[in-house]
Amino acid sequence: MARPLVALGASDPSAVLRGLEAALAGGPALLPVAEDAPALPTAPPSHVEQRVALVVETSGSTGTGKRVALSSDAVLAGAAAADAALGGPGAWLLALPTHYIAGLNVLTRSITAGTTPVVLPVGHFDPAAFADAVDRLDVGPADPRRYTSLVPVQLARVLDDPRATAAAATLDAVLVGGQATPVPLRERARAAGVRVVTTYGASETSGGCVYDGVPLGPVRAAVDDGELLLAGPVLAEGYLGDDERTART
Results as ranks from 00 to 15, higher is better:
140 G>Y: 10
174 V>W: 00
138 D>S: 15
144 P>R: 12
142 A>C: 07
125 F>K: 11
135 D>Y: 10
163 R>P: 12
168 A>D: 06
139 V>L: 04
156 A>S: 10
166 A>S: 15
131 A>S: 02
123 G>V: 12
139 V>C: 05
166 A>D: 11
141 P>H: 08
158 V>P: 10
159 L>E: 05
131 A>N: 08
167 A>P: 02
153 V>A: 09
144 P>L: 06
124 H>F: 14
162 P>M: 12
151 V>M: 02
145 R>S: 09
159 L>N: 09
165 T>F: 06
168 A>H: 06
140 G>C: 13
135 D>T: 11
143 D>G: 08
134 V>S: 07
137 L>C: 00
140 G>P: 11
125 F>N: 09
153 V>C: 02
123 G>I: 15
160 D>V: 04
145 R>F: 04
147 Y>K: 05
136 R>T: 02
164 A>G: 02
132 D>W: 13
165 T>D: 07
142 A>K: 13
147 Y>A: 04
168 A>K: 11
132 D>E: 15
153 V>S: 11
174 V>P: 01
171 L>A: 01
149 S>H: 07
141 P>R: 10
162 P>Y: 12
158 V>I: 15
157 R>W: 10
136 R>N: 05
141 P>W: 09
142 A>F: 12
127 P>G: 03
161 D>F: 05
152 P>G: 08
124 H>N: 12
155 L>I: 08
141 P>Y: 08
149 S>Y: 08
138 D>N: 14
170 T>M: 03
132 D>R: 15
136 R>D: 10
171 L>M: 01
165 T>N: 03
124 H>P: 15
158 V>S: 02
155 L>N: 07
160 D>H: 11
164 A>W: 03
162 P>R: 14
168 A>V: 11
149 S>D: 09
137 L>K: 00
152 P>W: 03
149 S>M: 09
158 V>E: 06
166 A>P: 10
144 P>S: 05
166 A>G: 12
165 T>S: 12
166 A>I: 07
164 A>P: 03
125 F>W: 02
154 Q>A: 06
151 V>A: 07
